[in-house]
C-alpha cells in the first residue's frame, strides 16, 4: 500500500458516500444516471468474486464489502425507493453498447483465460466506461447539481490517483498490470472535460453548466 493508492481508495469511498447521502437526504436521484450506478454495481460484483477466497487484508476485504453494499444500496434507492424522482427521460444511454463490446474484449485480451480472470478483466474494462451514461446525461440536461459534480470529481480523482500509484509501484516494486493501467488511463481521460469545467466553474462557486 502507498499513499497514492490510499488517497485513491478514500477518494473513491468519498464519491460513493457523497452520492448515497445526496440521494438519501434529498430523497431524490434527479440528475443521477441509474445506468451508471447499475454498471458500477456490476463492476464490483464481477471484480470482487474472490472476496471470500482470496484474503489480502482486513482493509481490502472491508473496502470491497463497503463498495458492494453501497453500490447496491444506491441502485436500490434509485430504482425502488425514490423511483419517482429518477429522470429516465434523460438517462437514455444504451448500456448494452458498453457491456457487449467490453465483454468481448475481456475474452480477447486478458492475462489468463479462466472464468475469474476474465470476469476481473471485464470489470476493469467496464469500469473505464461505466461513467459514460452519467456524463451523457449531464450533456443532455446541460447542467449538474453541485453535489453531483463533487461526486464526479472525487470519482474521477480516484482512478487518476491510481495511475500515480501504478507509476510508483512500477519504480519501487517493478509491479505493473498493463490491462489495469490502459483501462485506468482511458477512464481518467474521459473525465478531463469534466475536470476542466469543475475547476473553472464549480470551484468558483458557479453552477456546472455545459455549453449548450
Amino acid at each position: 500500500m502507498n499513499i497514492f493508492r490510499l488517497l485513491g481508495d478514500l477518494s473513491h469511498l468519498l464519491a460513493i458516500i457523497i452520492l448515497l447521502l445526496k440521494i438519501w437526504r434529498t430523497r431524490s436521484c434527479a440528475g443521477v444516471s441509474g445506468k451508471s450506478q447499475i454498471l458500477f454495481a456490476l463492476v464490483f460484483t464481477t471484480r470482487y468474486l474472490d472476496l471470500f477466497t482470496n484474503f489480502i487484508s482486513m482493509y481490502n476485504s472491508a473496502m470491497k464489502l463497503i463498495y458492494l453494499v453501497c453500490s447496491y444500496a444506491t441502485v436500490f434507492l434509485m430504482y425502488f425507493k425514490f423511483k419517482a424522482t429518477y429522470d429516465s427521460n434523460h438517462d437514455t444511454f444504451r448500456m448494452e453498447f458498453l457491456v457487449v463490446p467490453v465483454g468481448g474484449l475481456a475474452f480477447l485480451v486478458n492475462h489468463d483465460f479462466t472464468p475469474l480472470e476474465i470476469l476481473w478483466t471485464f470489470s476493469i474494462y467496464l469500469e473505464a466506461v461505466a461513467i459514460l451514461p452519467q456524463l451523457f446525461m449531464i450533456s443532455k440536461t446541460g447542467e449538474a447539481e453541485t453535489i453531483t459534480s463533487h461526486y464526479l470529481f472525487a470519482l474521477g480523482s480516484y482512478r487518476a490517483l491510481y495511475i500515480v500509484n501504478w507509476v510508483f509501484r512500477f519504480y519501487t516494486e517493478g509491479f505493473f498490470d498493463l490491462i489495469a493501467i490502459v483501462a485506468g488511463c482511458v477512464q481518467t481521460i474521459l473525465y478531463c472535460d469534466f475536470f476542466y469545467l469543475y475547476i473553472t466553474k464549480v470551484l468558483k462557486g458557479k453552477q456546472l453548466t455545459l455549453p449548450a
Partner: peptide, 10 residues
C-alpha cells in the same frame, strides 16, 4: 499479456 498479477488492489 505478461502476467504481473497480485490482485491486491481494489
Amino acid at each position: 499479456l505478461p502476467q504481473m498479477q497480485k490482485k491486491d488492489e481494489l
